[in-house]
Simulated scan of single mutants.
Amino acid sequence: MSISSVKTVQLRRYELVDGVLDDFVEWFGTHIVPAREAEGFAIEFAYADREAGEFVWAVSVAGDAERFAAVEEAYLASDSRAAAFAGQPTRVAASHVRLVEQVVPAGVRS
């Protein structure tokens, strides 16, 4: 299977500190999305659950889990990530991060 036909997706769910959702969403869009994309990630989706105070999003990399790990390692050490987090307050109280697999093809409706 070629690298372009495989995609690895990581689901990220954050329980946010009370009262920071709007600031988090703005920071995410202006800092995290560009930093992740600059390092080779694609943002699959991002949703805010205001009632629960949670933020759920998915990021992907073309290739297998091993390639995802390599891209993530480079991202974690990158200047773009460091700049995105510089001077930012703690907004995430707890995070839940896992690789996930697609079980229903995109665009399928019931």
Rank of each mutant, 00 (worst) to 15 (best):
V33D: 04
V108L: 07
F55E: 01
R81A: 11
I32C: 11
R67K: 13
E101N: 11
L99G: 03
D49E: 14
V97T: 10
Y75Q: 02
D49T: 14
R12V: 06
G40P: 02
V61D: 00
V25P: 01
V71H: 00
A52M: 04
Y75F: 14
I43E: 15
F41T: 00
A93D: 04
D64S: 09
E66T: 13
A77N: 06
G53Y: 03
G63T: 00
V92S: 14
L21G: 04
R12I: 04
F41W: 05
A62P: 02
Q10R: 14
P34M: 04
E51F: 10
V71R: 00
G40K: 04
Q10L: 06
G19I: 01
I32K: 01
D23Q: 10
F55D: 01
A94E: 05
S2K: 12
R67I: 02
S95R: 14
V25Y: 11
D49L: 08
L11K: 06
A84I: 05
F24N: 02
V108A: 14
R67M: 08
R67A: 06
G107Y: 03
H31K: 12
A86N: 06
V20F: 07
R12G: 05
A74I: 06
A46Y: 13
H96N: 14
V9N: 09
A69Y: 03
M1E: 11
T30R: 15
G87W: 12
A86H: 10
E66D: 13
L76M: 11
V20C: 08
R67Y: 00
R12P: 02
V25S: 14
V33F: 10
H96W: 13
F28G: 06
A48N: 05
M1K: 11
E66I: 03
E73P: 04
M1A: 11
I3S: 13
S78E: 09
V97S: 12
R109V: 08
A70C: 07
E72S: 13
S4H: 10
E73L: 11
G40E: 02
